[in-house]
């Protein structure tokens, strides 16, 4: 089922939380929702799950508006702070969620068992939720979201509180699910988006500032080549001036003065590696290092959201 968000706005009092955003997510796609704190990620997710009312615009799932409330049992939702009934045993809680999500009575036990296996809760399954550590509670949260095998999964920061091994497990789980389902997940952890998501959506102050795969975002944000160069046997200021005067070079940064380590930003859509090499040959300098740098997602994120 596709999710389509159409010119949606939402304000809290005079503060605009979400400002006229539109995007669609297709079946089999994992969308990573990125943004600084207070950017409107959670608000958008709450509107998709019909927990919050929409001020303007419309959200449809499989062509049906979510505001009718009839789509709820097609959605699996893990809210931000993972609220749970702490006094309930895990198995009872999952069975309760399954019953509410209209899982047929004869299937409930099988589904509960399957989710306990899938989310690695086997050892703890007889405990009450309140006795579990944060990571295990997070797993219970994921298990309740997936208990009815929903077509759509909305996960608000699914890996918070998990240890590195668990994070890898949960990522694999999400990637696996994402093959046939529509998944939207929000996170602050940038490598996580790269590792899990097919598509990245960055929002800031309620507006979408970037939309695309990690690769296209890189291209978009930095059409320029970035080189790290170390030159030996050359006076620093001479090398600096010479490189700076090359026609393809836009900017030179000195990273280390004593070893003459420079960072060279090229003009958009031209390459400077050959020019730098020729220059060194001409002057008789030794080119000890030349590395083409990839723009990090962190930098893209910072560029787009810090203004």
């Amino acid at each position: 089922m596709d999710i389509s968000i159409d010119h949606v706005s939402k304000s809290y009092g005079s503060q605009k939380a979400v400002d006229n955003i539109s995007f669609t997510v297709k079946t089999g796609e994992i969308l990573g929702f990125l943004g600084p704190n207070g950017a409107g990620k959670t608000t958008t997710m709450k509107m998709i799950t019909n927990y919050l009312e929409i001020d303007a615009g419309n959200i449809t799932i499989g062509g049906q508006s979510v505001q009718a409330g009839t789509m709820n049992n097609h959605i699996g939702y893990l809210p931000e702070h993972n609220p749970l009934y702490l006094e309930m045993p895990i198995m009872d809680y999952l069975a309760f969620c399954a019953a509410l999500q209209k899982v047929p009575k004869s299937n409930i036990e099988d589904r509960v068992r399957a989710m306990i296996r899938k989310c690695g809760l086997d050892v703890e399954k007889h405990k009450k939720i309140g006795e579990l550590s944060k990571g295990y509670r997070q797993r219970v949260g994921l298990a309740q979201a997936m208990i009815h095998d929903p077509e759509i999964l909305i996960l608000d920061e699914p890996t918070t509180g998990l240890d590195p091994n668990q994070i890898v497990e949960i990522r694999d789980l999400i990637r696996d699910l994402g093959k046939e389902k529509t998944v939207i997940l929000s996170t602050h952890i940038l490598p996580e988006v790269e590792a899990t998501c097919d598509r990245i959506l960055i929002i800031d102050k309620g507006k979408i500032v970037a939309d695309g795969t990690a690769a296209t975002l890189r291209k978009q944000a930095q059409g320029q080549q970035l080189l790290r160069v170390r030159i030996e046997d050359a006076p620093l200021n001479l090398a600096y001036e010479a490189i700076k005067s090359l026609p393809t070079v836009a900017l030179v940064d000195v990273l280390q003065e004593d070893s003459c380590l420079l960072e060279i930003h090229s003009h958009p859509n031209v390459l400077s590696n050959r020019e730098v090499f020729r220059l060194c040959v001409q002057r008789g300098w030794v080119l000890a290092e030349m590395t083409s740098m990839e723009t990090k997602l962190e930098d893209i994120f910072r560029d787009l959201t810090v203004s």
Binding site: K46, Y51, N73, P79, C97
Partner: peptide, 14 residues
């Protein structure tokens, strides 16, 4: 207060 109402109301329940 605990936010469990959100979980409840986002299920197939009115």
């Amino acid at each position: 207060k605990t936010g469990t109402i959100e979980l409840l109301l986002t299920k197939a329940v009115t």
